[in-house]
């Protein structure tokens, strides 16, 4: 292993996801679940309180990968496969039950359901969002015109955000999130809602971010988008990593699989999935802790020294 002091040969790793597991305990109205627990006291209590039994949902199981600067990573998978959860975990907005995520700088997530403050106007939300990301008031003020232009909402920018359509809201959120020039940008289907003109502008903006040595993660269930704009793709299925590789290859396989599912050919879909599984190369992430000099050395390992008077002041 390399000495920690030497030049880091992995200088370009920006995000490392190490064996991440996410579980949720959520109420379920499934009748089978209701009958399963046999403890009559627990069942009666639930019935009286009107609570549904809780089930454990495994949103992500054992995800590991390392992303590097200049990469645009697409994440594909059907609805509910854990794509958005993975993004929230990478962004640090949620913590995994097991495993951890390391990043070079604070990742910025643009989500579909992340409304800002609905009562405030778009303009005020821009300023607030910039300040929330840690920009100074001057920087935020300077960023406002650029964000306005990227969002391209015209006079609507002065109206309260609760009056916006979902597409307008998504455009504004995208524009705000890119204002801080984040090095690690996580995009959750944000582009799917924009119209053609906005799509072009936002793609140019993302290109710019990627060139400034950033890493972009893009979630979409449209494999086409991934194929066109990403360099690498990760396919998730039921919270598991199916395949991690070049975007064209992964997206193509995913499309074939999705097509087989859509055409109700479960056998074919299973074959594709199993082949992808068997061909994937597992990644194991090892985190090397930099060695710090010990602050306190226990007495028995201390080198012999002329005895000093004990320190009895607290400084």
């Amino acid at each position: 292993m390399a000495e920690p002091d030497q030049v880091d040969p992995f200088a370009h790793a920006t995000v490392a996801v190490q064996d991440v597991h996410v579980r949720y305990r959520v109420p379920s109205t499934d009748a089978a679940e209701r009958r399963r627990r046999t403890n009559p006291v627990a069942r009666a209590t639930r019935a009286v309180l009107g609570n549904d039994p809780k089930v454990v949902v495994r949103a992500l199981s054992g995800i590991s990968f390392v992303a590097r600067s200049g990469e645009q990573v697409g994440i594909v998978g059907q609805n509910g496969s854990g794509k958005s959860t993975l993004l929230r975990i990478i962004a640090g907005l949620e913590n995994p039950a097991k495993g951890r995520v390391l990043a070079e700088s604070t990742p910025v997530l643009i989500g579909v359901n992340a409304a800002l403050v609905p009562d405030l106007s778009g303009e005020q939300n821009i300023r607030l969002g910039c300040l929330a990301m840690g920009l100074s008031p001057e920087q935020a003020q300077a960023a406002v015109p650029e964000v306005k232009e990227l969002a391209g909402l015209g006079k609507s920018i002065y109206l309260p955000m609760k009056t916006y359509s979902s597409g307008m809201g998504a455009r504004l959120r995208f524009a705000i999130a890119t204002a801080a020039n984040p090095h690690i940008l996580l995009i959750d289907e944000a582009l799917a809602t924009g119209d053609a003109a906005f799509k072009e502008r936002s793609e140019a903006r993302m290109q710019g971010l990627r060139q400034s040595a950033g890493t972009v993660f893009l979630v979409s269930h449209a494999a086409q988008t991934i194929e066109e704009s990403c360099t690498r793709a990760i396919w998730l299925n039921h919270g598991r990593l199916v395949l991690d590789g070049p975007a064209e290859d992964v997206a193509l396989r995913y499309r074939k699989w999705a097509w087989a599912i859509a055409k109700d050919k479960p056998e074919e879909a299973r074959t594709i999935l199993e082949r992808a599984f068997s061909e994937r190369e597992q990644t194991s992430v090892h985190v090397e802790e930099p060695q710090r000099p010990r602050r306190y050395t226990s007495r028995h390992v201390r080198p012999q020294q002329p005895s000093r008077r004990p320190d009895n002041g607290k400084g």
Partner: peptide
């Protein structure tokens, strides 16, 4: 099932990358 698959080891340095959400 996939225990026997090849594993590629990636080493990252915790000196440069910080844990998110910690």
């Amino acid at each position: 099932i996939f225990r026997e698959q090849p594993v590629s080891l990636e080493v990252v340095s915790a000196g440069r990358l910080k844990q998110v959400g910690a």
